[in-house]
Design a binder for these strands. Sequence first.
DNA 1: CGATAAAA
DNA 2: TTTTATCGG
Length: 326
Amino acid sequence: MGNSDLRSLAALSECPFADIEGSTVAVDAHNWLYRYLTTTVKWTDDAIYTTDDGTEVANLIGVVQGLPKFFEHDLTPIFVFDGGVTELKDDEVEKRREQREQAEERLAEAEAAGDSIEAARLSARTVQLTETIQETTRDLLALLDVPYIDAPAEGEAQAAYMNKIGDADYVGSEDYDTLLFGAPSTLRELTSKGHPELMELQPTLDEHEITYEQLVDVAMLCGTDFNEGISGIGPKTGVKLITEHGDLFGVLEARGEHIEFADRIRELFFDPPVTDDYEIESDIDPDLDAARAYVTEEWEVDADEVERGFERIESAVVQTGLDRWS
DNA sequence: CGATAAAA
DNA sequence: TTTTATCGG
């Protein structure tokens, strides 16, 4: 169950920063923030990441600490936010896994209620990023002059689309299902210590001698965010069966299995809602003083927690500024 | 979540 | 090979 099956199919390679300097990266903002909030915050003092009135501001620290990596390697990030309604919940840390398990249910519920499958999809993947987190992140990005856009639905799908049409050289996400959205090149572990990991679509398809559509079908047999998958089928037999029978429905028919809403889940990957209504701006001119003030004064974040990050951003910007003159 | 060991 | 369980940063 889940995405680890996809990992074993994906063509992965280590990707030194030197190879990607100057690139544009469409970052799945949701994924990026969520990851930060569930890792860093979880293992550290709550007090540092919360204001007096209990508002979560860990995202601000995350942005300040995460962005230097981009600037230092001359990468232009474009943060892509999820569109649609945002569910507001302060509960926090309800595991994504639970949501995945509920996804099918919600899908069924939505169907019963006559809702569009779109609504189900959004709710199935709406994680608890509070309104404050969304807003303050945007505010801070704006002050730092880091471009961001709003996706009509899935940020991941939008990022994949931008990658596909060449507006972004890479998608930045930890999730493997960017492959299923057709992203040619995804960078993982962009903010961790070592080198990023490059995940490429075409080599993945070549390796298994399947088409993109077949890859999605294999994934659906194994299980995706939106369906459970067929018990007893993992990545290996998935590929074997799809190759044997051509596509998902061939396999299902041959085995007498059924995946609810299979055709529509497929379409979700093949043709998700995306927009062309955005602009690519690669000149980044952060207002560091304003950003500092915003984080430490307006949101009362301990200056010690972010100073290092700001310094790194500052020197990186100076650096690239010099580069432009030479 | 990811990596891994062990069971089915 | 797949599934289930467990652990660690």
